[in-house]
Amino acid sequence: MNRRQLLKFTALAGVAGVGAGFWALPRGPRPGTTDLADAQRVLAGLVDKVLVSTRGWSPAEVFNHCAQSIEYSMSGYPELKPAWFRGSVGPVAFGLFTARGAMRHPLDEAIPGARPLDAPASQAEALGRLQLAFADFAAYQSELKAHFAYGALSHEDYARAHVMHLYDHLSLIHLA
């Protein structure tokens, strides 16, 4: 390891250590386990409900964002973080989330290079898109694409990531 790599690693480790305290804080109760079937049940329970977001994106935008993430895991993300990030910081963050059984991330940050979150515009259609994305992912048998931040994930790890991602976003969505 050369000096530049060592300095970069030391800086990242320090940032990760300081940030871990913040990211480890719970946001609120989880709606279920990090299981695909539980997430699909949670989503089914939202059908025909009037939902509001306490801040940030509308429920439709949240559903479109979560659907994008699932779809991109099968088709490929439009932009990836640098390889060094996907090989170091990203997997450490995913490991922390997995150990906690919950994710905490910025809830108004779009996937790099992703399309706008305005289609479909209605909450019902966006929720349907998300439910279809989960069903497609559950049935997906081919090799999954690298996550834009975490790098290569198994189907099981990706399922866990998608469910934790959904639950983190649902922390801001409530019945009207």
Results as ranks from 00 to 15, higher is better:
residue 2 N to C: 08
residue 3 R to D: 09
residue 5 Q to P: 03
residue 9 F to I: 06
residue 10 T to S: 13
residue 11 A to H: 01
residue 12 L to K: 02
residue 14 G to A: 13
residue 15 V to N: 03
residue 17 G to L: 12
residue 17 G to H: 11
residue 21 G to S: 12
residue 23 W to M: 15
residue 23 W to S: 15
residue 24 A to F: 10
residue 25 L to V: 12
residue 28 G to P: 07
residue 34 T to E: 15
residue 37 A to Y: 01
residue 38 D to Y: 00
residue 39 A to P: 04
residue 39 A to W: 00
residue 39 A to T: 01
residue 43 L to R: 04
residue 45 G to W: 01
residue 49 K to C: 08
residue 50 V to F: 05
residue 50 V to S: 11
residue 50 V to T: 15
residue 52 V to Q: 09
residue 56 G to Y: 04
residue 57 W to C: 10
residue 60 A to S: 14
residue 61 E to M: 12
residue 65 H to V: 11
residue 68 Q to C: 09
residue 70 I to N: 14
residue 72 Y to W: 05
residue 77 Y to E: 00
residue 77 Y to D: 06
residue 79 E to A: 09
residue 79 E to D: 04
residue 85 F to N: 00
residue 88 S to T: 11
residue 89 V to S: 04
residue 92 V to H: 04
residue 93 A to S: 12
residue 93 A to I: 14
residue 95 G to K: 06
residue 98 T to F: 02
residue 98 T to Y: 03
residue 99 A to V: 03
residue 99 A to R: 11
residue 101 G to M: 01
residue 102 A to G: 09
residue 105 H to T: 15
residue 107 L to K: 09
residue 111 I to M: 01
residue 111 I to P: 02
residue 112 P to A: 07
residue 118 D to G: 13
residue 118 D to S: 13
residue 122 S to Q: 11
residue 122 S to R: 13
residue 123 Q to F: 01
residue 126 A to W: 00
residue 127 L to P: 09
residue 128 G to F: 01
residue 128 G to D: 06
residue 128 G to T: 05
residue 132 L to Q: 14
residue 135 A to L: 05
residue 138 A to K: 03
residue 139 A to E: 08
residue 147 H to L: 14
residue 148 F to N: 13
residue 148 F to M: 12
residue 149 A to G: 03
residue 151 G to M: 10
residue 152 A to N: 07
residue 153 L to P: 15
residue 153 L to K: 05
residue 154 S to E: 03
residue 154 S to N: 06
residue 155 H to L: 08
residue 155 H to I: 06
residue 156 E to W: 01
residue 158 Y to D: 10
residue 159 A to V: 13
residue 160 R to M: 13
residue 161 A to M: 04
residue 164 M to D: 08
residue 164 M to E: 10
residue 166 L to G: 09
residue 167 Y to C: 07
residue 167 Y to W: 01
residue 168 D to W: 01
residue 170 L to T: 00
residue 176 A to G: 13
